[in-house]
Design a protein around this nucleic acid. Sequence first.
DNA 1: TAGGTCGATACCTTTTTTGGATGGATCGGC
DNA 2: GCCGATCCATCCAAAAAAGGTATCGACCTA
Lengths: 308, 308
Amino acid sequence: MFELSQLRCFVAVAEELHFGRAALRLNMTQPPLSRQIQILERVLDVTLLERSNRAVRLTPAGQRFLADARHLLKLAESAAALARRVASGKAGSINIGFTATSAYSYVPALVAACRRELPDIEISLKEMVSSDQLKRLDSGEVDIGLLRPPIPRGNLSSFRVTAEPLVAALPGGHPLAQADQSRLEDLASEPFIMYEPYEARYFHDLLVELFSRASLVPNYVQHLAQIHSILAMVHSGVGVALVPETALNLRFSGVVLRPVLMQWQRPAELFFVWRSDNDNPLLPVIAGIARDLAARAGSIQSMDRSIQ
Amino acid sequence: MFELSQLRCFVAVAEELHFGRAALRLNMTQPPLSRQIQILERVLDVTLLERSNRAVRLTPAGQRFLADARHLLKLAESAAALARRVASGKAGSINIGFTATSAYSYVPALVAACRRELPDIEISLKEMVSSDQLKRLDSGEVDIGLLRPPIPRGNLSSFRVTAEPLVAALPGGHPLAQADQSRLEDLASEPFIMYEPYEARYFHDLLVELFSRASLVPNYVQHLAQIHSILAMVHSGVGVALVPETALNLRFSGVVLRPVLMQWQRPAELFFVWRSDNDNPLLPVIAGIARDLAARAGSIQSMDRSIQ
DNA sequence: TAGGTCGATACCTTTTTTGGATGGATCGGC
DNA sequence: GCCGATCCATCCAAAAAAGGTATCGACCTA
């Protein structure tokens, strides 16, 4: 098979229609150029150029091949450029896993920021629970996980991107909804809609600890995994619930969210997680974007909370 | 810039993920293969493969480049194949000029035969009068001319593809239309629709000679270049005319065509003409098709005439 | 810790490519 | 019609590149 250097030789000769000038352009002398063209023609088994002693002309096959040669050279050039861009993290693709709850606010913000700063990358998003994300991170199916603690030791790196308080979700007409804020013990005495212990393990365990520390035993009337399902239950008066503040973004009508007074509290945290040995060049870039976003969102969040 | 052989090396390694096996597949030993990959990476300035001592892995940039490398190799392959096909006359493109009259029967038959036997070629057809065709043949804008004599000496080759008698074109209700055939002197005494002496010089000169040899002086009432215009005139009763037999293919209603008895006669001839030094590989192939077609059409034509 | 695997390196051999000199054909001017 | 100029092809010696063998070094397994 021929080589790209031979295509460059051929294109030069085809454009100059003169071996001497073409050789000059290629920074070589004429004899090796003649030989390269001959080799190319022998490999192809096609006469590309008609050399009368006075002029060089393209044969029809040469004309056709010239177009293809130019095309190939251009493609080779852009393949190299693309590889460089991927290596430098300006292009490429990345797989991101995220939890259902993170989709309410953080994920859209992150994706928007990436699209703005890295317009040429391809982001593939997959919603899954934290434990599945950890599995896919390990297998390499997912480059970035946006998930809830705990993060196992091992070859994973991570940093926190959101930490939001839990708020009470109350039916619009509920007596507790009249006050500006609720107390945890008031919620515990109401019918309480609880998180499903496997699908929504993080929130389940978080609430269990919360009530346990406050020595409260709530009256669980329903277990659900998805926050929007919980809010729907609250809306229809089944009970009250505790949800992360980001539930505000759902704008669920007929449900009011109120800060909750707690002695001991822990925010709902979301982490940006990746395998330390993942060499996707986009990873550090996107991690940077995610970190900036977390910092900025953190300050806005606290502002929001102060004016609320 | 890199070379295609390096792409082949890279694809082999990327597919085997093992330098030793890849080298085996490439019919070489492992060290030079390692070196080629290193050169490729250095030229691109991109790490394509992650070699831990236990395993070889593609980097994201390598993954992306692998797809492009495969694509490039495939394109190179097909460019070579196409060049060979063009050189052998199985593909390519050709420019054909033809006279208006030849479009009634011979050109469509020729094009159909070419499409059948050379499905991958591109035929570009341009209608023009014979003299223009000769100019374009000379300049190389046209590869094949389908034109009327005379064909000048020089570097042109040609052969005859059709030779058809002239027939009388008569209005449907005309007294001469009653007879199975007409006599030339009958036509000469009618109002006669003549060919335009420049645009349709061949037919004009042919008829002038015809009448002159028969010592007839027709009554020219109109000069026109296009046969369909002449038939339209005949149809509307302006006069009678002499047209090549192929005018049958126009199926002009209200006009009847009748053989003409003549002492001295010469058929209307169409020639397949090309520049002897034209090296388009399609030329000999299409010339062969045209010749076959002429031979076959000739016999069919004479059959047609006998049963008419 | 010994043996095996696997990619990188060192070093030598072979092949390919390069470039100057030259050949041979053709064209244009005198 | 001869002479010089032009231009691509060929020849040959030198340089460069690629290939092969032996070996290294890291690492994994037993």
